[in-house]
Write a protein that binds this DNA or RNA. Sequence first.
RNA 1: GGCGGCGUAGCUCAGUCGGUAAGAGCGCUCGACUCAUAAUCGAGAGGUCGCCAGUUCGAGUCUGGCCGCCGCUACCA
Length: 499
Amino acid sequence: MSRYYLTTPIFYVNDAPHIGHAYSVLNGDAVTRWHRLLGDEVFYLTGTDEHGLKVQRAAEANGLSPQVQADRTSQRFRAAWAELGVANDEFIRTTEPRHHRAVQKLMQRAYDNGYIYSATYDGWYSVADEAYISQEDVTEEDLKAGRVERMTEENYFFALSAFEEQLLDWYEANPHNITPEGYRNEALGIIAGGLRDISITRTSIDWGIPVPWADGHVFYVWYDALTNYATAAGYGDDEGRFAAWWPSARHLIGKDIIRFHCVYWPAMLLAAGVNDLPKFHVHGWLLVGGKKMGKSAFNQISPSDLVSDFGVDGFRYALLRDTPFGPDSEVSHESLQQRYNTDLANNFGNLLQRACALVHRKCGGVGPAPDTDHPLADVVAAVYADTAEGWERFQPSVALEATWRLIRDTNEYLQATEPWKTDPGSVVDTILGNVLESLRIVCILASPAMPFACEVAWGRLGLSGSPLDQRLPEAAEWGQYPGGLAVVDGEPLFPRLLD
RNA sequence: GGCGGCGUAGCUCAGUCGGUAAGAGCGCUCGACUCAUAAUCGAGAGGUCGCCAGUUCGAGUCUGGCCGCCGCUACCA
């Protein structure tokens, strides 16, 4: 048994949950569910990032305290993921006391180790980005709109430049630390291009975690936020727990935050004396009409709208199946619906439906046992291998495509044997037993993407328990449908969607 | 400017070490079937694998150049 600690980015409470956020969280949820099936000890973390100037100002504008502002938005994320059936083990908030302790400890250690020093910044500051910007990037429009302000403040800087070599060595020695591989080159490019020290504190705001060695300073959002991954694993609170979990840490991130995660964060860990560095799984953006999912168009559709259109599992499946993990992916309501109708209504749902109906018509509603040795068993073995590899490589779309081959072959088998033309008896029993067995395995293999629908389908087959409690790879071995179970001839699992 | 990636059927994409790889799914057309959610099964049409040149007995697959799209990064005006 191995540990699998996966994190999503924590989401900034300045924004409402949208499909882009959901995309990260669902990929992580499906992958961790797969690892649970394997019997791995899984820790899946998501949460919210709650400090910083933007939150402080949004709170002021709403006449609220920053904490109340953060509480409200954080709750929206929590509710959104619950609605999507996300099985995160914890939901961390950067305003929690344990997180304050962890950030202070991590940064204090870096400070004690000599990697943090003070300097004065005098220049332009972008409120929107919460970042210092250079003179030439300041535009008149920004000034008029108040997006850019003049600022002079004493800062503490992190000696990022001291870690160039260590980071390059680490990436050299661990070529699989970033997947898909293309993104590894980006991280290497950033490092090889030369690293500059970075400002990590602010005196201009209050809404943040206090710097332990300097009154009036709080940590800048990013250095506060990144540490959440360590906090949740017990850093600063429970060293035994941290030691157990941290070596298996993996961060699921979008390509826009590679610099912070794949360069700054490992350096921060090294500076604090943490030498186990995490792995990264990087995904692209969802595009609508060729443009990044922003605050317009499809974005106006909330995850919850899509749940009402496709059902939780319909949405989860269509999104995961239609978007290769890594590259940017074009998505639309039409493409999701097409995927839903083809793969779920026509293939999986309809196969289940016809199988159950046939069992009722030919076998009195009692599901027969399969052949112990049957050609479909070979299909299952191949499908299992490819499905497992897909999940292992953090490629949900590949894994699901592999699983669906079993559904296709089972439909084909049914068509070839035509049990509806045959009188009840052992021949029909065996055919239907084979189909039920095939469906049993599909229910398990598809459950990371569709935990609820697969449980329902499992029950239709007359099986007790849940596909979520099965153990792979044993449970995917052919021939375990016991026979003699009461099969349920119910309503279609995935009603075909018309428009 | 530098580094890197991409450009394969209408759509989304696979193509490992150059040699039955020109493929899959969807969509489309035709046929079959009727257990099932007008679902399923079969057959077929459709591509000069961005362009040009080269290496080779043989190149989506290697080399050079070009065009187009994109990412990271630098900098000069």
